[in-house]
Structure formats: C-alpha cells, structure tokens
C-alpha cells in the first residue's frame, strides 16, 4: 500500500509529468478544460461585479463591491494602463488587450490550478481504501496514471507549445495586418533599407531571412519552453521536498528520522509553495507581456535596431521583465 507513496518519493519528476488516463486522454487535457471552466466562472462573476449596476443603486452602482471583482479589476487596469499601453502604444494596446488579457488569465488559471494537489488527494483516497488503480492501467501507456484528475497543464510542453502557437499566429496576424504580406516578407528580409538598397547588399538577404524566420519561431518557442520549464522545475522541487520523508523511510530511516525529515522538508515545501504562487503569477504575466512585445515589434516595419532599443527600454522601465523571465 505504501509502495506508491515510496515510489512517488523516489521519482519526483514522474509525479510532475503529464499522464494518460486512456489511449488519448491525458490529465493535462482535463486540467485545461477544468481551468477553462474555473476561469470562465471567476471572470463572468467578476465582470458582473465590475459592470454598472441598476439606477436604483444610485452612485453605488459604479462601485465594484465584490472582493473578487476588485482583484480582477485591479489586474485588468494595471496590465492595460501600466503595462500594455506603455509598451504597445494606445492604438495597438486597445486592439490587443482582450487577447493578451485572455492569455494572462488562462495561463494564470492553469498555473494556479496546478498548485492544488488534486492528484495527491486522490492518491491519498486510494491508499485509504486499499485499492490503487495504478495497477489497472494498461502497461502500454507511456506514463501510467493512478489518478483521473489534477496536475499542472502548463507543465506539459505540448500545452505551452499550443499556447505559444496562438501567440505566433497573433504576431504574424498583426504583422500582416500592419505591413501586408509583402511588407512582412520585406521585414523578414531586413527591412526596406536593405531590400531597396544597393544590389551588393542583396547577398546578405537570404542569411537575414533565415535568421529572422528562425527568430520569429524561436520567440514563441522560448515562451513555451520558459513556461513549461518553470512549472516543471517548481513542481519537481515541491515533489522532492514533500517526498523526502517517503524517500527516507524507503532508505530505512527510523520513525524519528522520517518524522524529522518530513517536518523539515514539509516546512520548506510550504514556503516554496508560496514562491510557486508568485511564479505562477509571474510566468502568466511574462507569457502575456512578451507576446505583447513581440506583437509590437512585428508591427514596426522601420528601423529594426530602433525596435530592439525600444524593447530594451520597455524591459528596463518595467523591472527588467524579459531579463527576469529569461533568468527564471
């Protein structure tokens, strides 16, 4: 009965990665759908609290009364007015704020949803009732699941890749919308100065095109990998800390030793959980913010260096956000 706990203690990474429930359904897919439902519920409730009330309420109809509504309102106002508008400009920010905020709230919900130990609670129930479905799962699944619900969807590279693909589509859409297809190609070939410049400079255009195209794909890929890596790393760290006691027991430590190690590592685990709460928020913000930066970069067809300089300025003025993201 304790084998599964010992096993999870010995294999913390296995505790974090996505698992199959049947031939095609995975835990991350259920988490995405559940996260979608939770985010919808919270945002609709918040929107109702923020919207103007009936005339009979007098001046109070303009006040957001619910705490949830106030939290969402602060987030929306701060992200829109203090982050997106300074980075993208008024016009672009007005166009892209719904998309970028939906990205933020979606990723944030999935990140936070992953912090709730749904899977562990199910494991505990299975342990209590003495039957573990781990043994019923067909052996041909790459990752066998002992549970039917839980896990961090954004700890799957496929999920973060999907979200980053949407970002890539948004970046390309904005570029084509602003510059046209030819303008976008021209941008990818080094800009009008190079394309319409001296003929001998055309020799470098293929090289620039390859680099720019690679950059176009690498940017969202970096978004996906950054989010995935942060979620996996954080949850692995938590699994390691919470599994120390089981690992000690497996290694033959006495009761006092196991209890001491569990208490110490559990305390650190709780503290790291607070850090993970912050990371969940930070990574959602970074995913959204970098998408906003890439969209605004692709919408400028002029001086490339100027754009880069701009992005660095924005990063500096907002606490080195991209640098922080990369470092994290």
């Amino acid at each position: 009965m304790l084998q599964t706990i010992f096993a999870s203690g010995a294999d913390p990474v296995g505790h974090v990665v996505d698992k199959n429930i049947n031939e095609w359904l995975t835990l991350s897919m259920l988490s995405i759908v559940a996260g979608f439902a939770v985010a919808m519920f919270v945002l609709v409730k918040a929107a109702k609290a923020i919207q103007t009330g009936p005339e009979s309420d007098g001046n109070r109809r303009y006040i957001t009364t619910s705490r949830l509504g106030q939290v969402i309102e602060v987030m929306v106002l701060h992200l829109r007015d203090e982050m997106l508008k300074p980075v993208m400009g008024e016009r672009l920010a007005n166009t892209w704020t719904p998309f970028l905020l939906s990205q933020f709230f979606f990723v944030l919900t999935l990140n936070l949803f992953g912090l709730v130990p749904w899977a562990d609670m199910q494991e505990a129930v299975f342990v209590v009732f003495g039957h573990h479905p781990h043994f019923d799962v067909p052996a041909n699944f790459s990752q066998k699941s002992a549970v039917y619900f839980g896990g961090t969807a954004t700890a799957s590279i496929l999920v973060t890749g999907g979200l980053a693909t949407v970002s890539l589509v948004a970046i390309l859409y904005q570029s084509i919308r602003e510059l046209g297809i030819l303008g976008t190609l021209e941008h990818l070939c080094g800009g009008p100065d190079l394309v319409r410049g001296p003929i001998f400079l055309w020799l470098v255009i293929p090289l620039i095109f390859v680099v720019e195209l690679a950059g176009l794909i690498i940017k969202p890929a970096a978004l996906a990998i950054r989010l995935f890596a942060n979620m996996v790393a954080g949850h692995t760290l938590l699994a390691v800390l919470f599994g120390f006691g089981a690992a000690a027991a497996k290694a033959g430590a006495g009761t006092f030793g196991v209890a001491s190690i569990t208490l110490l590592s559990g305390t650190f685990g709780v503290l790291i959980s607070f850090l993970e709460l912050f990371v969940a928020l930070l990574q959602a913000f970074i995913f959204m913010f970098l998408t906003a930066v890439f969209i605004s970069l692709m919408s400028h067809g002029d001086d490339h260096a100027h754009d880069e300089e701009h992005s660095h300025d924005h990063a500096d003025s907002h606490g080195h956000a991209p640098a922080t993201a990369a470092a994290h």
């Binding site: 996505d18 095609w24 359904l25 995975t26 991350s28 897919m29 995405i32 759908v33 979608f36 985010a39 919808m40 945002l43 609709v44 929107a47 719904p98 998309f99 905020l101 939906s102 990205q103 709230f105 979606f106 969807a153 799957s156 496929l158 999920v159 973060t160 890749g161 999907g162 979200l163 693909t165 949407v166």
Partner: peptide
C-alpha cells in the same frame, strides 16, 4: 491531443472573453 486541446480551448476562451 494536449496541444490541440490547448489551442482549441484557448481560442474558445479568447472568443468568449473578448466578446462578452
């Protein structure tokens, strides 16, 4: 499947969020 789910669910989420 997780990739497709992420894209489809997010697009639906975005549509509802942006529209309503």
């Amino acid at each position: 499947a997780p990739y497709i789910t992420a894209v489809v669910v997010f697009v639906v989420f975005f549509a509802i969020f942006a529209q309503f």
